[in-house]
Design a protein around this nucleic acid. Structure first.
Length: 121
DNA sequence: ACCGTGACCTACC
DNA sequence: AGGTAGGCCACGG
């Protein structure tokens, strides 16, 4: 984790907070894409930052900073292809199970039905 | 201040 | 139609 395992506390939560808000606003049974979020934030072409932001936020959550409601439904965030990219980060099939629990339909390939569950900020 | 990395996306060949 | 390459912004060291 040269640059992945970050832990910025104090200043620099600008981007993370923004992503957190958007992702937290995702309705149940709906999924959005990194690019859409990035574009909404203004980062536009830097969709990777969104995923990175989630990673950082997750780090905080894991650290125990989740005083209020630090539940970031990263499982509702997928790539442009509808694939659960961060599935590995979740720890196996937790992501898929969560989405399925919400009523999300999965394609035979294992991707989410963007046509029915695509939500845009 | 620069380089390297990152859960991506778009464009060109 | 498929594959490859580059780009974008942000953060750590």
């Amino acid at each position: 984790m040269t640059a992945g395992g970050n832990k910025k506390n104090g200043s620099g939560k600008d981007f993370y907070e923004r992503v957190f808000e958007v992702v937290a606003r995702i309705p149940e049974g709906k999924v959005t894409t990194y690019g859409a979020i990035a574009r909404h934030l203004g980062t536009g072409g830097s969709a990777r930052l969104v995923g990175w932001a989630l990673n950082s936020t997750l780090s905080e959550e894991k650290a125990g900073t989740n005083e209020g409601q630090t539940m970031l439904p990263c499982h509702r965030v997928v790539n442009r292809n509808g694939e659960l990219t961060g599935k590995a980060w979740f720890g196996g099939d937790v992501m898929e199970d969560l989405l399925r629990s919400e009523g999300v339909r999965f394609d035979p390939d294992g991707s989410v039905d963007m046509s029915r569950h695509y939500w845009e900020p």
